[in-house]
């Protein structure tokens, strides 16, 4: 029916009002995101080449046209050079990538069976289970991390429980360790792993499993050869949704980690708020941005393939 309708000619006869409406709907959110999301990155890049000074704002301009021509350009590589020379930053970047990668892997190991179970449950149970996965989003993230401080502390619930049943004699140091950071990240980000996994597993055609079983495949063979490859889009999406935000995480290492738990988000935050070295913080952010943009682009590509 709609085939006979000349859709193409519509564009030529578009009245002014329709055109304005179209420009308005596309243009306003587009402009907002360009101005407040994309443009700021270029400013971070710019300031990462500036020199810190004690002033308001605390950095120099990149150009000074008052003197003679050879001194116009004030931009320097000093911040980046400093980053490569000081061990602290290497350690921070490396440790962030390590913590994010290991946490992502643990989320995958724990989240996959959960997502699988939810996808295979009866509709009523499924809705309840899904709601339980989403429920933590509705309470404050900060307070949930804070609750872990109460659980893991020296006089916390876990330590008193272990002491009461006689497993340990004196309180274990659990809070302010790397283990607490892993625990916090896995706990916080696991819904981001479960939901995309669930979405792909739920859509999966179960007749493929029956076919594999009929052809004599053992359950684990069916899983490795059929289920796992088919759920790859979910695995990729979930892993990136955990890995990318975890790499720059500030709150969890600041509250649960020890003084030595240097994740790059915390280093950047301290560089900015404690040392007030804005250009150096910008340089740290630029490198971090490069590290996360690559997986984001991969993510977008996998999203487009799904469509």
């Amino acid at each position: 029916m709609s085939d006979s309708k000349p859709v193409v000619t519509k564009a030529y006869h578009q009245p002014l009002g329709d055109k304005l409406w179209r420009h308005f709907v596309i243009g306003v959110p587009y402009f907002w995101l360009l101005l407040f999301f994309l443009a700021p990155f270029s400013i971070v890049l710019k300031i990462s080449f500036a020199t810190p000074i004690v002033a308001q704002p605390p950095f120099t301009q990149l150009f000074d046209f008052t003197g003679n021509a050879s001194q116009w350009l004030l931009a320097t590589w000093d911040n980046y050079q400093f980053l490569t020379e000081d061990n602290l930053y290497w350690v921070s970047y490396f440790k962030s990538i390590k913590i994010a990668a290991v946490s992502t892997f643990i989320c995958l190991l724990v989240g996959y069976p959960m997502a699988y179970g939810i996808a295979r449950a009866t509709p009523t149970t499924r809705n309840i289970l899904l709601m339980l996965v989403i429920l933590p989003f509705w309470t404050s993230f900060l307070l949930r991390v804070y609750a872990w401080m109460g659980l893991l502390g020296k006089h916390g619930i876990v330590n008193s429980l272990l002491m009461n049943i006689g497993l340990i004699d004196s309180p274990m140091q659990m809070l302010y360790t790397d283990m607490a950071v892993y625990l916090g990240i896995v706990y916080t980000y696991i819904p981001f792993m479960i939901l995309p996994l669930y979405a792909t597993l739920e859509k999966m055609d179960t007749s493929l499993h029956d076919a594999a079983a009929d052809l004599g495949a053992k359950p684990w063979q069916t899983f490795i050869d059929v289920t796992l490859p088919l759920s790859m889009p979910g695995i990729i999406a979930g892993s990136l949704l955990v890995f990318i935000p975890a790499i720059g995480e500030y709150v969890i290492p600041a509250l649960l980690g020890g003084i030595d738990s240097l994740m790059i988000g915390r280093t950047l935050y301290d560089e900015f708020f404690v040392n007030r070295d804005w250009p150096l913080a910008s340089a740290v952010a630029t490198i971090l941005l490069i590290i996360v943009v690559i997986p984001i682009m991969l993510f977008q590509r996998s999203q487009q393939e799904q469509e």
């Binding site: 720059g248 995480e249 988000g265 952010a285 984001i296």
Partner: peptide, 18 residues
């Protein structure tokens, strides 16, 4: 898609400098 995954420290710093 980008703001959903961008680490908060980057979004925060870039907006402030903006």
């Amino acid at each position: 898609a980008a703001p959903l995954v961008m680490p908060e420290v980057i979004t925060g710093l870039s907006l402030l400098l903006m």
